[in-house]
């Protein structure tokens, strides 16, 4: 059985979107490198352009994104 996932190119590497979560109008994408399972990162959908994903602003935003991921998967 296979899953069809959205793919986003960042720094010339292809990442698949493993999960997506929204909190207070911020949407976070949880990404995994197609060629390296251990290479993961989180990006945020830009508020100015919904088709662009940008790095997180600071550590606080990173913590929010991590907590959201946990709650999103478990629920």
């Amino acid at each position: 059985m296979e899953k069809e996932l959205e793919v986003i190119e960042i720094d010339n590497k292809e990442y698949c979107v493993i999960n997506e979560a929204t909190y207070k109008e911020k949407t976070f994408l949880y990404l995994s490198n197609l060629l390296d399972e251990e290479d993961t990162l989180i990006r945020k959908v830009s508020s100015e352009d919904k088709s662009t994903v940008v790095p997180l602003q600071d550590e606080n935003e990173f913590e929010i994104a991590c907590n959201l991921l946990c709650k999103n998967i478990i629920n």
């Binding site: 996932l5 986003i8 990442y15």
Partner: peptide, 13 residues
Amino acid sequence: GSTGKRTGKTKKI
């Protein structure tokens, strides 16, 4: 790191 673009491209895993 860099920004990225959502193009709607998909792949199966």
